[in-house]
Simulated scan of single mutants.
Amino acid sequence: MVFFFTQTACITIGGSYTVIPYVAQLVVAKFMWLSRLQMLDGFALAETTPGPLIIVLSFVGFMAAYNHFSHSIALGVTGLLATTYYTFLPNFLFIFLGAPLADRYKDHHLVQTTLSLVTAAVVGVILNLTFFLGRSIIFPGAVSLSQVDYVAVTWVLFVLILLLRYNTNVLYLVLMSMVFGLSRYWLHI
């Protein structure tokens, strides 16, 4: 875990929405530390609180250790602490070492061009995250027309209409979705 989260901090650029898809795909598909639904729970938790990157990665570290070590809370907390520390240590080193250079070259054409390409890549990664998470919501089982969760699809469309047509505040949409999700859980819809 130490190597993985240090590597994650060093090779991902663009913030939490670029790190999260990378981590999600590896911890779910390759390492199998978490299930797809556990990863979705971590992302949902992060979206209801400030600081999505720290929340998601700490959650992943906790759940990975918790799942791997027979549901031990103590080792889960150890995984959480290790993940948090080794995710952010390289970033602080980069900031302290790179800050003087960043100010000197901020107006350089090559730097501006590179940053615009990074921004384009970040948009692609966010779209990938949308598909990764959306698949788990729309197709809770296998990906087939018989497995489509039509209630979830209807809610997604409703929220999109509120967001795009009526410019509804995202905080209200998150709160409405939480209430809808809890109601759906209690009513077994």
Rank of each mutant, 00 (worst) to 15 (best):
T12M: 15
A82Q: 10
W33Y: 14
Y185E: 08
G98A: 08
T154K: 06
F31E: 02
T12Q: 14
L127K: 05
L110R: 09
W155A: 12
K106G: 04
M176Y: 13
L117R: 11
I126S: 05
Y66R: 00
P21A: 07
I161T: 12
V153Y: 04
S58T: 12
D41R: 03
H71R: 14
V159G: 01
I161K: 05
R135I: 08
V56C: 07
P90A: 07
L40W: 03
F132Q: 08
L157R: 07
L93A: 15
G42P: 03
W186P: 01
H109F: 12
L34G: 00
L110Q: 14
I13H: 13
V153E: 06
D107T: 09
F69A: 02
G14A: 10
T6E: 02
F69I: 03
L157H: 05
N167E: 10
I137A: 04
D41Q: 07
L187G: 05
S58C: 04
V56N: 02
H71E: 12
Y185H: 14
P100G: 11
P21W: 01
L171I: 11
E47T: 02
F180H: 06
L89G: 03
W33C: 01
A74V: 08
D107M: 08
L57F: 06
K106W: 05
T113R: 11
P50G: 09
A82R: 03
T48A: 15
N169R: 13
Q147P: 04
A24K: 00
Q25A: 05
P140M: 09
V179F: 14
L26Q: 09
A46S: 15
Q38K: 08
M32V: 05
L173A: 09
L53Q: 04
S177T: 14
V2R: 12
G51R: 05
I73R: 13
I11R: 15
F132M: 13
L173V: 08
L171W: 11
T130V: 13
G76N: 04
F5Q: 01
L110C: 06
F158K: 00
L26S: 04
L34S: 00
C10T: 10
A152N: 03
I11V: 15
L81N: 04
S136G: 15
L163H: 11
P50Q: 09
M178I: 11
I11E: 12
T12F: 13
